[in-house]
Design a binder for these strands. Sequence first.
RNA 1: GCGCUCUUAGCUCAGCUGGAUAGAGCAUCGGUUUUCUAAACCGAGGGUCGGAGGUUCGAAUCCUCCAGAGCGCGCCA
Length: 577
Amino acid sequence: MNIFDLYLEKIIKIVKEANQNKTIEIPEMLNGINVDIPPTQFNCDISTNVAMVLAKPNKKSPIDIAKHLVDLIKKSDDQIEDISIAKPGFINIKFKKSFWNIFLKELIFEGKNFGTNKKITKKKYLIEFVSANPTGPLHVGHCRGAILGDVLSNLLLFNNHNVSKEYYVNDYGNQILHFSKSVYFRIREIVYNETFPINNSDLYPGDYVIDIAKNIIKNNKDLDFDNFEKISSKLTKLSVEESLKLIRFNLKNLGIIHDKFIRETDIVNNKEVEKTISKLKKNNFVYEGKIKAPENEKTSHWTERDQLLFKSTDFGDDKDRALQKADKSWTYFASDVAYHNNKLERKYDILINILGADHAGYIKRITSVVEAISGKKNKLICKVSQLVKLIKDNKPFKMSKRKGDYITIEDLIDEVGKDATRFIMLNRSSDVELDFDFTKVKEKSRENPLYYVQYCYTRISSVFRNVGKKISDDIKIKDYKFNYTDKEIKILKKISEWPRCIEIASSKLEPHRIPVYLYELASEFHSYWNMGKEDETKRFITSDKKISDEKLVFLKAVSNVIKSGMKILNVETPEKM
RNA sequence: GCGCUCUUAGCUCAGCUGGAUAGAGCAUCGGUUUUCUAAACCGAGGGUCGGAGGUUCGAAUCCUCCAGAGCGCGCCA
């Protein structure tokens, strides 16, 4: 039950009826009208701007319109205790206490589905995220996008959409070649006692490559490591699979499981690139042409030549994009074009890509491709997650591939924990750079917002435990005729904002709103809890170790919302801490 | 040079599908514990929402310009 939507509908109905009775003029579009949360000092529950929106078409002051509407609203609804007008024309509504009983009854009935958006139609989503090169384990830099993608899919699932999570494995091209060469040199180091060419900056020097080399030697006794060319393709495959093992392990420890891993080599080997390009050629989106050197400083080595280009300038990109390299092999972009065609052929309604900030410049061309193939705009939504600035011992911590100097996901999980990592990474808008202070998060774990929210759930659990009940048990109440106090209603109001939080978070793809909301709810609850210290009537458990239905329902409502929010974030809600 | 993102309290950030007197946490200062778990609570101080215009009844929120910060601008992935 979304009370804001409920009252918006009621008000629009009233306005339309008034229009039919010729007492009010309405504009063509009524979407400027909204029902909102009023500022706390007004002592009311919801407010609407309807009078201000209607002022102009009626050529009357908002206050006059409001006066007219207030009567109509009051007449049509028996749950309103007080309805008033505030400058410059807001209509403020305060509900009777019985309204909150209706609300709670509905909430308990909906159970864990409370908050799901019922207005939307079910869609099929494909969300691609992480997709880090399979050249080693994930590091902290990958972490934010991984968690963002995971929680977005949970959020969409919560709203009953169909969601498929995919990882695109870039196992084709130069970087992979360098990687498998690195593995090869590590193998030679082990087998023939040769020194690893540490000064070759193309190679991956990290220690994990040694482990990968060892594994490959152990499991492939029949392989002849004498000549790289001979075993290159086999070795590449083995190296990639070893990397993927590491990556899957990292993701699992973060609580993330993808539905599918799609390999770039499969796309290329299945001739999907040719297929897609010829499709685009037919529609004149692909042609042979030259591109100009980029305008930044290092242009001296640039040679212009004819090559296959995608006409992304047709879609507002600043230059057309190359599909083929000089050696006629496909560019990264070309196989990604084919991959997106592959996605579209699988008939998803919406595609979502989660990208790191360093790939933001790629968005224009890939959305252009999807538009070119599907003929539709906004079929692909790209969501960028900004950088995580790591801070350790009060200094920015720079990771270096060269030195193999990383903070890996395992380090992070060992030291900070999966839940805290997830919560902190999600607690900020993905548009903003995130300071992740390794030392602080570790030391001051008590100040961590995760525990603040979890503690709220723990406190509620302890009440249930103390009266011999379980927090997970369903509760059955015959009549909802409770007389909640102002403080309790304040918390119920916060709970009533939950469906709205979900709605905005999912429509804008901004999951950070969930931890922010949960923190606020927890804060209200802790405040209430502490009132019980001074005033025994405010405690949940009476002196004879019982709890009233009234308090039971109240606690159930709070814990339901915390539980479903934390479930979307995929963090634990322990009953004891 | 061009593109994307950001700029809100001392610090880290919410708030942005336009609404009323702009909110948290940390830090600072002062209080609360024989208790349903103090991993908590209560109170105080702290603001030219980067700057300038514009749209609007109304702008932190939308538009334009400017400044600063970050990221990117390959035939790398």
